[in-house]
Amino acid sequence: MKVGNNDRRKPDTASPQREEAVIFADLAALCASPGFAHAIAYFCHRDNLIRFQSEVTTYDLARLHTGEQLTHTEISTLIGLLSRQSIDYALQPLAVTQGVDFH
């Protein structure tokens, strides 16, 4: 298992790069969408929960540092963008909240 390789997905260089302000505006709009608070809760659970059997091992902790998880700063940014307007706590289907297709 690789630990701490920080191999974030590289942007598609074939597509034209978008301006940071445009990306941030899109992210702010996403955070304002109904039920996004539940998606943030899912990210926090997925990326910060330590799963173990009887004792915590270095292997259990290593999965928290693969570079695929959102950082605390990224999650804090999402929470900040979410809190800029009144929060709609409407529940969305799991496929929407967790970004997976269950079919």
Rank of each mutant, 00 (worst) to 15 (best):
P93Y: 08
A37R: 13
R8G: 09
T66L: 05
Q98C: 12
I75E: 00
Q92H: 09
L61P: 01
E74Y: 10
A90D: 06
E68D: 12
G80V: 08
P34H: 12
L64M: 00
T57Y: 08
C31I: 07
T97A: 07
S76L: 08
I23D: 01
D26W: 01
C31A: 12
A21R: 09
V22H: 03
R46T: 06
I40G: 05
R46H: 05
I50N: 00
H45G: 09
L78R: 00
E74Q: 13
D60E: 03
R63P: 00
R84W: 08
S54Q: 13
N6A: 11
A90N: 10
D60P: 02
T97E: 04
Q85D: 10
S15R: 14
Q85K: 12
Q53E: 15
R84Q: 15
T66N: 07
V22E: 07
S86K: 15
N48K: 01
D26T: 05
G67S: 00
Y59A: 13
C31E: 03
R63W: 06
T66Q: 07
E20W: 09
A21C: 05
R46P: 04
C44P: 03
L78S: 00
N5G: 15
G35I: 06
D7A: 13
L82G: 04
G67W: 02
N5K: 15
D7S: 15
T13F: 11
P16F: 15
A21F: 03
S76V: 07
T97V: 09
R51M: 14
T66S: 05
T66C: 04
R18Q: 12
F24A: 13
T73Q: 14
L27V: 07
A37Q: 11
I40T: 12
A37K: 13
S76E: 08
S15Y: 13
I79D: 04
S15H: 10
F36K: 01
Y42N: 04
I75A: 01
Q92V: 06
Y42G: 01
G35W: 07
A39F: 03
H38N: 08
N6V: 11
H38Q: 05
Q69V: 02
V22Y: 05
A21N: 05
F36V: 00
R46I: 00
H65V: 01
S76A: 14
E55C: 09
V56W: 02
A25Y: 03
R51F: 15
C31F: 07
A41L: 06
I75K: 00
Q69Y: 01
Y42E: 00
S33L: 14
R8L: 10
D47H: 02
L82S: 06
P16I: 15
H38C: 01
A32I: 02
A39V: 09
D12C: 11
R63Y: 06
L91T: 10
S54L: 12
F43V: 14
R8V: 10
A95I: 11
H45A: 06
I23A: 03
L49A: 10
D26R: 04
L94V: 10
L30F: 08
A90R: 14
L91W: 06
L27P: 04
A41R: 08
R18A: 10
A25E: 03
Q17Y: 10
L61G: 06
H45I: 12
Y59K: 15
